[in-house]
């Protein structure tokens, strides 16, 4: 690696010997190390229950490593709290496997939420949100409440919410798990397109067919260990 590059562009995500267990339960991840350069695209795969969601929650600083070190955007994340924690989260966009849309808000409000909580005025983002919703094919569902959306529609709303604040890193947890193969392909290309524009992407999926469609790094979780496939 070129020294210049290493100093000017630190890894987006870097794990060194990270172990994790929920409470006093079994170790879900052990000795996980990875180093993702900026603007990279990685699939995170592994069988159901392997710990994909857990690894994403670690990166999102929603849970903390039981051992080892996690660095984001070149900075350590140990003992983060309060507003410093929020600063890191604002640089990431996440698509939750279970969507986590707020049922009492319209699709439009849900997608606008990241901007709303950052204190932006509606006038500054309204057009952008509507456009993004159209782009993911929810143009006619903007006023709908999540409970009335189909699985695929929820998925797209969740994706739109993850993208709206233009994060540097996108964490997508099975973002194509609820849609037909055609839409899955389209959504996948949305992430590829974003990646081309400079966003780092980690896309968790257990769908091998999906991974074959894109040339990208592969991280495989198996029995608590992380393997790199080239």
């Amino acid at each position: 690696m070129n020294w210049d590059e290493a100093t000017t562009a630190p890894s987006v995500v870097r794990l060194d010997g990270v172990g994790f267990r929920y409470g006093t339960g079994p170790e879900i991840l052990s000795e996980v190390s990875l180093d993702l350069p900026p603007r990279s695209f990685h699939f995170l795969s592994g069988p159901s229950g392997a710990g994909k969601t857990t690894l994403i929650r670690l990166i999102l600083l929603s849970v903390r490593p039981t051992s080892g070190e996690l660095r984001l955007f070149g900075e350590t994340t140990a003992d983060l709290a309060g507003d410093r924690l929020t600063q890191f989260r604002r640089r990431m966009g996440v698509v939750f496997q279970d969507f986590r849309l707020l049922d009492h808000l319209t699709t439009y409000q849900n997608v606008a939420l990241p901007l709303l909580v950052q204190g932006y005025e509606e006038a500054t983002f309204r057009g952008e949100v509507v456009e993004l919703l159209q782009w993911v094919g929810l143009g006619d569902r903007i006023g709908a409440m999540p409970p009335t959306l189909s699985g695929g529609e929820k998925q797209r709303a969740a994706i739109a919410r993850a993208l709206i604040a233009r994060p540097e890193l996108i964490l997508a947890d099975e973002p194509t798990g609820n849609v037909d193969p055609a839409l899955a392909r389209r959504l996948l290309h949305l992430f590829v397109e974003l990646n081309r524009l400079g966003t780092s992407v980690i896309l968790a999926t257990h769908d091998v067919a999906l991974m074959d469609q894109v040339e990208a790094g592969r991280l495989i979780l198996l029995d608590g260990r992380l393997y790199h496939d080239p």
Binding site: L105, Y108, V130, E131, L133, G139, D140, G143
Partner: peptide
């Protein structure tokens, strides 16, 4: 893109919104 949707359906964002 399809024509712009009816923005009256968006729901309130400012004062009226219960986050």
């Amino acid at each position: 893109l399809p024509p712009r949707p009816d923005e009256s359906e968006l729901g309130p964002i400012g004062r009226g919104l219960q986050i």
